[in-house]
Simulated scan of single mutants.
Amino acid sequence: MTMRLAIAYDVSEDSNRRQVYRTLQRYGAWRQYSVFEVDVTKTDRVELEDELESHIEPSDGDRIRIYRLCQSCQDNTTDLGSDPPGEQSNVL
């Protein structure tokens, strides 16, 4: 069984930010500048969290926040404005 997660990140160093972006890209879809949505199993989630944690420096103020989206939340999601970004990114 999979779960949907919304993951937001704020990573100060370019190389770390690229690693976080590439890691998340393997698991799901880029939705906004520093936000991804991913569908993962419980095992995948543990692996993802471990990998993400290895790419950040908390002492630099880096943060990653993970939200689990229940089905009701997913069904009530509203997008305003332009479509989510495509494969091209402005990640440095």
Rank of each mutant, 00 (worst) to 15 (best):
M3E: 14
M3G: 07
R4Q: 04
R4W: 04
R4D: 05
L5T: 00
L5C: 03
L5A: 07
L5E: 01
A6Q: 11
A8S: 13
A8Y: 09
Y9G: 00
D10I: 09
D10W: 05
V11W: 04
V11K: 06
E13Q: 12
E13V: 13
E13A: 14
E13M: 14
D14H: 13
D14A: 11
D14P: 12
S15P: 09
S15C: 11
N16T: 04
N16S: 15
R17Q: 08
R17P: 06
R17H: 04
R18A: 12
Q19F: 11
Y21V: 10
Y21T: 07
R22G: 10
R22V: 10
T23M: 07
L24K: 08
L24Q: 09
L24N: 09
L24S: 05
L24V: 10
L24W: 10
Q25F: 14
Q25T: 15
R26E: 14
Y27A: 15
Y27L: 11
Y27R: 13
Y27H: 14
G28C: 10
G28K: 02
A29M: 14
A29G: 13
W30A: 08
W30D: 08
W30V: 07
W30G: 05
R31Y: 10
R31G: 11
R31D: 12
Q32D: 10
Y33L: 09
Y33G: 09
Y33R: 10
Y33V: 08
S34F: 02
S34A: 03
S34R: 00
S34T: 05
V35C: 00
V35P: 02
V35L: 07
F36R: 03
F36M: 01
V38G: 02
D39W: 01
D39I: 03
D39V: 05
V40C: 06
V40D: 03
T41G: 06
K42R: 11
K42A: 14
T43R: 08
D44I: 02
R45Y: 15
R45W: 15
R45N: 15
R45V: 13
R45A: 15
V46Y: 13
E47I: 15
L48I: 09
E49R: 11
E49L: 12
D50C: 08
E51H: 04
E51Q: 12
L52A: 02
L52Y: 07
E53Y: 15
E53P: 13
S54K: 10
S54M: 07
S54C: 07
S54W: 05
S54Q: 09
H55Y: 14
I56P: 04
E57Y: 01
E57R: 08
P58M: 04
P58L: 02
D60F: 15
D62G: 04
D62Y: 10
D62H: 02
D62V: 08
I64E: 00
R65N: 12
R65F: 10
I66Q: 05
I66T: 12
I66K: 02
Y67C: 00
R68G: 02
R68N: 09
R68I: 09
R68L: 09
L69H: 03
L69P: 00
L69V: 05
L69R: 03
C70K: 03
C70L: 07
C70H: 08
Q71T: 08
Q71R: 05
S72V: 07
S72K: 10
S72Y: 11
C73P: 01
C73T: 03
D75M: 14
D75C: 07
N76I: 10
N76T: 13
T77C: 04
T77M: 06
T77V: 13
